Simulated assay, not measured.
Amino acid sequence: MHENVVVKQRLNAPVAKVWNALTDREEMKNWYFDIPDFKLDMHHEFNFFEPGGEKFHHHGEILEIIPERKLKHSWSYPEFSKEKTLVRWELEPVGEYTEVTLTHKGLENFEHLGVDFRKESFEQGWKDIVGKQLKQYVEK
């Protein structure tokens, strides 16, 4: 069974502003993660740690870029597993608003890693990141 998380959120902000929040590492620090080696280039690899508490090393590779429409990258935890998942951010203009759809695909690949890596944990995390942190950041 494929374990996907899909989070949709309508943001009161234009697509260009949301795209910049998703792809500019200086802006990302304000609402997402501090990813010092992030660069919006095809096949560029990046690494980051979540703030506070247990710090898991995250690794990603940019797999698709359609400016102001779609960003797709891999998501893995190299210290725990060779398995990878995919994160896709899709933006759609709806009048003055932007509809964001985040899809995290392949979470069954992390089942063996324990409770912190279950679909429910990712679902809650992404709802907070997209529905609260990103929303508050771009709507201010």
Rank of each mutant, 00 (worst) to 15 (best):
G106T: 07
N4S: 14
R10C: 03
V6S: 10
E99G: 00
E92K: 11
A16N: 14
D24T: 05
E120G: 01
R25Q: 13
T85K: 05
T103A: 06
G53A: 11
E99M: 14
A13C: 08
F49S: 08
I129L: 13
M1F: 03
E45H: 03
R69G: 01
E50A: 13
I62Q: 06
K127N: 14
K105F: 02
Y32A: 11
G95F: 06
I62P: 07
L63F: 02
Y32T: 02
K55W: 03
P93D: 11
N4P: 05
K55E: 15
P51L: 11
T98Q: 10
F33M: 14
E79Q: 14
E120D: 15
I65Q: 08
N30T: 05
K140F: 07
S121P: 00
E3F: 02
Q133Y: 15
H73T: 04
A13N: 04
S81P: 05
Y137I: 01
Q9L: 00
D116E: 15
E123N: 13
E68C: 04
E92N: 06
E83Y: 03
H44F: 03
I35L: 02
G52Y: 14
S76D: 10
V7W: 04
F33W: 14
H104G: 05
E90L: 01
E90F: 00
V6Q: 12
E123H: 10
K84I: 08
F33H: 14
L40S: 09
E120F: 01
K70I: 12
E61P: 00
K70L: 14
K135D: 07
E111D: 12
E123G: 00
V15I: 15
E45C: 05
Q9G: 03
T98K: 06
H44D: 10
S81W: 06
F48V: 10
K72H: 03
Q136M: 10
G114F: 03
T85M: 01
V87R: 08
S74Q: 03
K70V: 12
T23F: 01
L40V: 06
A21L: 05
P14C: 12
L86G: 00
I129R: 09
E108M: 02
Q133D: 14
E120K: 12
F56L: 07
M42H: 04
P51H: 12
F122Y: 15
W19C: 07
E123T: 08
K82P: 07
K29E: 15
H73V: 00
E79G: 01
A16M: 07
E92G: 01
G60K: 08
E50I: 11
F49W: 14
T101R: 10
K132I: 10
N30E: 14
V5C: 07
S121H: 12
R118G: 05
I35E: 11
P78N: 07
K127W: 01
L113C: 02
N30Q: 14
K135Q: 13
E54F: 10
M28V: 02
D41C: 04
I65A: 09
L11K: 04
H57W: 14
E123D: 15
E27Q: 15
L71N: 06
Y137L: 06
E108L: 02
F80N: 08
K8Q: 15
W126E: 09
Q133G: 02
F117I: 00
N12C: 13
E83D: 15
G114R: 09
T23P: 04
G52T: 13
E50H: 14
E68A: 07
A21K: 06
E79T: 06
V6P: 04
R118P: 00
V115W: 09
D128T: 13
V15D: 06
D116I: 00
E90A: 04
G114T: 05
